[in-house]
Simulated assay, not measured.
Amino acid sequence: MTTPPPTKSLPTSMLQPPAAPQPVDTPAADEPKGAAEGVPIAVRFDPRRDDGRRPVAWLHITAPPSWSVTPSARSWCICGYERQAIGRATVLQLIAAHGEHRTSCPLLNPASEGRAAA
Rank of each mutant, 00 (worst) to 15 (best):
T26P: 00
A116Y: 03
A111K: 06
D30P: 04
S75R: 02
E100K: 11
T12Y: 06
L10N: 11
S13I: 10
A57S: 15
R83D: 10
P106N: 00
E82G: 10
E31F: 05
R88Y: 05
H98W: 13
G52I: 05
D30C: 03
H101T: 08
P71V: 07
S104Y: 00
T103D: 08
P17L: 08
Q16M: 07
A97I: 03
P32M: 03
A63K: 11
D46E: 11
E31G: 00
P23F: 04
L92K: 14
G87C: 08
P32D: 13
L94P: 14
E37L: 14
A28R: 14
G38V: 00
D50I: 07
G38N: 04
P71N: 10
R49E: 12
T70M: 07
V56L: 12
P21D: 12
L92Y: 01
R74L: 12
A20G: 06
C105Q: 05
S66L: 07
P11C: 05
A19I: 06
V56W: 06
V69S: 05
W58E: 08
R88V: 12
A97D: 15
E31K: 06
I61P: 00
R44I: 09
S112R: 11
E100T: 05
G34W: 03
W67C: 01
A20F: 06
H98A: 14
V24S: 05
L10I: 15
T70R: 06
I86L: 15
P32H: 04
I95N: 04
A73R: 02
Q93L: 12
G87S: 09
S9V: 12
L94Y: 02
A20S: 11
V39G: 00
P23Y: 01
Q22R: 13
E100L: 12
A35F: 05
T70P: 00
I86G: 10
P32W: 07
S13C: 09
P64I: 01
L15P: 00
A36T: 10
A36Y: 00
R48H: 09
P21M: 07
A116R: 12
C77L: 09
P40C: 01
G34V: 03
W76D: 14
A116G: 07
T26H: 04
P64Y: 01
S9C: 03
W76E: 15
G114K: 10
Y81Q: 09
E37C: 02
